[in-house]
Nucleic acid binder design. Structure first.
Lengths: 208, 208, 208, 208
DNA sequence: TATGAATGAGTGTTCATTCAT
DNA sequence: CATGAATGAACACTCATTCAT
């Protein structure tokens, strides 16, 4: 009846619960349609508590976005990919690309909601858009060319614009993921078979 | 004390103005963040007028979506593409594909906002999602395979799954459009050059 | 498409249709909950037409009320009752009272909706209340005492306050009508039998 | 930019204030004509606060009705009357009836607004009507016959249908109350005198 | 005279935000 | 620190009323 806390006292944990609940709701309904009361319920805190940590609703979005950007850009473009690339440095390029695809599919399956929020809200919030794209382009221009550079030098692949090549590859994969997610009924072949096929098309496409 | 009639009287036109304003606002801010007062202002009508034509705000979205679906699915997948394909039937496949890309870029430039609305809101509204995907998968499964069939028979290209090939091609194009829209600064080559390159990669990828 | 009338042109008739539709709707939902659009539809006219005849919605109510008051007060308290009383002047008083009851039940069955509107809206609109009660009290004080005066003089009934007696009788009848309308299931005896019983109670009650 | 909490915190009290304000306004203007903004002002709360307790305006009516029904049916038909009847069990029947009338007048004077709401809105809302009448008829059929039964057995009064007798008595009283409320100017005798007269009429009417 | 498209003040309702406890 | 009752600006939506045709 009196005001005051009941649950465990762990500010960091509470903050995290709120942020995670917010990401969940944002990804289900979008930022505008999500309500703070809903988020509070999902986080298991009182509505007022949210505002101790995030004075404005938009702060929730910003924090989520910053985390997402870090995850998406740093993790996606850098860490994870770098790892794959390094591990497979000596492997045939087919194997490298397949590993990349599988890695990306896993990434999207785990970080899907967050990614969704990024892409949805980026459209509407100039500040977020800039933040995201700045980070992204920074990393992309650094990392992407390296991936194919070595192979080009070895003469395995054509001397084409690396960005275009990589981006095309990404487009193929995303199109596959998107289609398998939303219109799975039109598929006639198995996922692994499909991955092979995509890699095959891509490699034939760019090889000398 | 209450309002009265003033402006021109043309129901059909008013309805259209409202719908167009709505699509514009929806695509700028998303459905939830858009307000009817804002839409009214953009349409140049009183707020109450909107509700004569669209009793619920969601009706605006639904109507926009139905129109969008018709445009996107029927027009995109069928009419326009069919035309391109027929016109270029005897042309080399490179030319066909380039024509398709240019046609799609034009389409997206003109119908961009509408398309954006579709993809945003589809995520959140089950009913819209079903409506869209049903139409889309219907058409895709009919049209897409025809595009490559002939070339396969002539032995120009590999005997691979047409859906995967086409989808990969679409993915490449969309990735290009998306990147050029949002991170244009990382581009090093000219659009037409890029189109040539994409077609080249794709054709090499699938040719026998 | 162009503005302009289609139907018969008969102002008086149109006006009447509107008023009747209004009374119907008012009695179904009350004045406030009734909408002019609903009334227009029920009257078979365009919404704007209503305001040619009744510039304000309240005018509809006022006109209905005036008609109702005329009907209810003049007709109920005066004409109809007078007629019954005159016809049965020489009849035994039991017969007179039964005739009155039957007459009143008929009246209410025919004029029910209008009566309902009177009693409902009277509560909220001071002006209507005054109009109604003024008329009513005028007539009641003139008519009511005459009904029993003669019988009193003949020594058939006690020399009690006529108003109280008559009002009690009216109360008995209205209670019967109300109960039969809303809780008919609790009745054990037939209507005519019940009328006999009420008259019997009343007459025994007032007889010397 | 948006509001904040200020006043005392007592949910139960706030809820009650709102309900009472609502009953007051409903009884003054009817449900439809009452506005939530008006109710909020009368209750001394912000408009939004109302909806924390009663998510829909109609919920206010329903809650008021349920309370009213309980009060009216349970209290009126059962508790209060039972008490009177028990207290006066050995008293002459005249005294019993007078006590009943006085008790009822007091009841209506105190609960008037609530009762008014019941009778108004019952006409328009099927659900309320059913709720009310169900409760009412349940109780009436249980309580009413008991009132006269004993007297019948003692041979003091005729062996007539108890329901009709009681209802007639209620009708007489309500007619008195109604008339005294709305057309007080036509009265020539004092209230207590009038009560005596009504009881006299009724008793003579039903005595053997 | 009748129409019905258009109006806009006003209604019920929502929700981010505040603050006494 | 956390609560949740309270707030009020803003929203979707209604409806009596006006007026060009």
């Amino acid at each position: 009846m009196k005001g005051g806390g009941k649950m465990k006292r762990n500010a960091k944990e509470t903050e995290k619960k709120i942020l995670e609940a917010a990401i969940g709701i944002f990804s289900k309904k979008g930022f505008s349609a999500a309500t703070t009361s809903e988020i509070a319920k999902a986080a298991g805190v009182a509505e007022g508590t949210i505002f101790k940590y995030y004075p404005k609703k938009k702060d929730l979005l910003h924090t989520a976005m910053k985390e997402a950007i870090h995850l998406f850009v740093a993790s996606m473009a850098v860490d994870s990919l770098k790892k794959v690339i390094k591990e497979k440095k000596e492997a045939p390029i087919e194997e490298l690309l397949k590993a990349v695809i599988v890695d990306r599919i896993n990434f999207l399956e785990n970080q899907g909601p967050l990614i969704k929020v990024i892409f949805y809200e980026m459209q509407f919030h100039e500040d977020l858009r800039e933040l995201f794209l700045e980070k992204l382009s920074e990393n992309i221009t650094q990392i992407v060319p390296q991936i194919l550079q070595e192979r080009k030098e070895k003469g395995e692949i054509k001397n084409i614009d690396s960005m275009v090549a990589i981006r095309s590859f990404i487009g193929m994969i995303l199109a596959m993921i998107f289609q398998r997610q939303f219109i799975p009924q039109i598929n006639k072949i198995e996922p692994m078979e499909e991955i092979d096929l995509i890699v095959d098309i891509f490699l034939n496409g760019i090889k000398r």
